[in-house]
């Protein structure tokens, strides 16, 4: 197995990604800019939505790069960037245990209740 295959822990990426705080000034050419996740609000009134990721040395540069990479066609009016290493994700192997308990609780949905048709505005 090639060594560049690493196990995934955080978000969609490995935990091996460096954060800006870890950057040394020694200028090693092996130093990769940290990875950032980009969230865009497409218009007022809507949530920021994850659109992808990019590399940048710091948050300001990440926002500037996100502008160029993800909003070339008026896709957004507001950008959030979060360093990928700060994203913690649930484990897909535990999906059953996490989401199963909701399955047998049909009474949480309004359609569960059988009421007369004459009943209106409810």
């Amino acid at each position: 197995m090639k060594q560049y295959i690493i196990k995934q822990y955080y978000g969609d990426y490995g935990e091996g990604k460096n954060g800006a705080a870890d950057i040394s000034t020694s200028g090693s050419s092996k130093q990769e800019w940290p990875l950032w996740e980009v969230f865009i609000r497409s218009k007022q009134g809507l949530d920021h939505k994850h659109v992808g990721s990019l590399h940048a040395a710091d948050a300001q540069m990440a926002i500037e790069n996100a502008r160029d990479v993800y909003t070339r066609r008026n896709e957004g009016i507001s950008i959030w960037v979060v360093e990928s290493k700060h994203i913690h994700a649930s484990n897909p192997d535990e999906a059953d245990a996490l989401y199963d308990p909701a399955n047998d609780k049909a009474y949480r949905h309004p359609t569960f209740y059988d009421l007369p048709d004459e009943l209106t505005h409810i």
Binding site: I23, S24, T25, G27, S29, W33
Partner: peptide, 8 residues
Amino acid sequence: EAACAYAA
């Protein structure tokens, strides 16, 4: 490298 140094 300069961008890294500036961020640090």
